[in-house]
Deep mutational scan, measured.
Amino acid sequence: MTEYKLVVVGAGGVGKSALTIQLIQNHFVDEYDPTIEDSYRKQVVIDGETCLLDILDTAGQEEYSAMRDQYMRTGEGFLCVFAINNTKSFEDIHHYREQIKRVKDSEDVPMVLVGNKCDLPSRTVDTKQAQDLARSYGIPFIETSAKTRQGVDDAFYTLVREIRKHKEKMSKDGKKKKKKSKTKCVIM
């Protein structure tokens, strides 16, 4: 069974824990209790493949930012979460993405942009803004509501699919490099 290491990042209060708990335990946590770091595991079937999701729910508070490099190193894919009623959390996505790329030393890291709290009427981040940002990053965008469960499975499952595509691409690139290195030079 394939294991996928997913990391949920975003500013404090955007609903990272609520999304994760909704996926794992099928219930909505409405009281806000700032996370330092929590880890969850769940076995699911995605596109006919049974897999184990190892999900790291991270601290959004700035005082825990020193811990970010460590979990970013171990993560295979990242859910970059903002709240649709919090423009600052949307603007912060850029910083999370840049930090992930720096730590992973790669421009090509599996990510999904997630606009959470889409059940709320007080939207300050337009869907088109988020779609445009995701398009500019070359990553999928999904709106979710941890409260109603809308888009929750889709967000995590899409990230797994992005990781699969990335692994497939990397193995193809690896095979191309191996083929090239088999060419021999004969000096007579």
Results as ranks from 00 to 15, higher is better:
126 D>E: 06
175 K>L: 13
109 V>N: 07
41 R>P: 00
185 C>R: 13
62 E>F: 05
156 F>Y: 12
164 R>G: 07
170 M>S: 15
38 D>P: 01
45 V>I: 07
90 F>S: 14
29 V>L: 05
142 I>H: 14
51 C>M: 11
21 I>M: 07
75 G>H: 07
137 Y>T: 11
6 L>E: 03
117 K>R: 12
4 Y>K: 15
122 S>R: 05
15 G>K: 01
181 S>Y: 15
33 D>V: 01
156 F>A: 06
157 Y>H: 08
7 V>D: 03
46 I>F: 11
77 G>W: 11
66 A>N: 10
133 L>Q: 07
178 K>V: 11
6 L>S: 15
127 T>S: 07
31 E>V: 14
173 D>T: 05
169 K>G: 13
149 R>Y: 12
133 L>C: 06
9 V>R: 08
38 D>R: 00
68 R>D: 04
127 T>G: 07
82 F>I: 12
26 N>S: 11
175 K>R: 03
48 G>Q: 11
19 L>Y: 04
187 I>Y: 13
133 L>M: 05
19 L>D: 14
106 S>V: 12
122 S>Q: 14
76 E>C: 09
167 K>N: 06
62 E>I: 04
94 H>R: 14
47 D>W: 06
2 T>Q: 09
28 F>D: 00
24 I>T: 06
118 C>G: 10
68 R>V: 03
5 K>S: 05
42 K>R: 13
130 A>V: 09
188 M>V: 07
40 Y>M: 00
111 M>N: 02
47 D>G: 11
46 I>S: 12
34 P>K: 02
18 A>P: 00
97 R>G: 10
5 K>A: 04
83 A>K: 08
56 L>C: 03
36 I>Q: 00
133 L>T: 10
112 V>N: 00
8 V>F: 02
17 S>G: 00
133 L>E: 10
71 Y>L: 03
33 D>I: 01
96 Y>C: 15
28 F>I: 02
59 A>W: 00
14 V>D: 12
139 I>Q: 07
30 D>F: 12
188 M>E: 15
111 M>I: 09
99 Q>D: 15
162 E>I: 07
50 T>S: 09
34 P>S: 03
157 Y>E: 12
27 H>I: 10
115 G>V: 12
34 P>L: 01
62 E>G: 04
162 E>R: 09
106 S>R: 14
175 K>Y: 10
166 H>M: 11
176 K>I: 02
29 V>D: 11
51 C>P: 13
102 R>I: 07
80 C>H: 08
130 A>S: 06
38 D>Q: 00
176 K>S: 11
121 P>L: 08
8 V>D: 06
50 T>P: 12
80 C>E: 02
26 N>Y: 05
26 N>Q: 10
23 L>S: 15
65 S>N: 04
121 P>T: 09
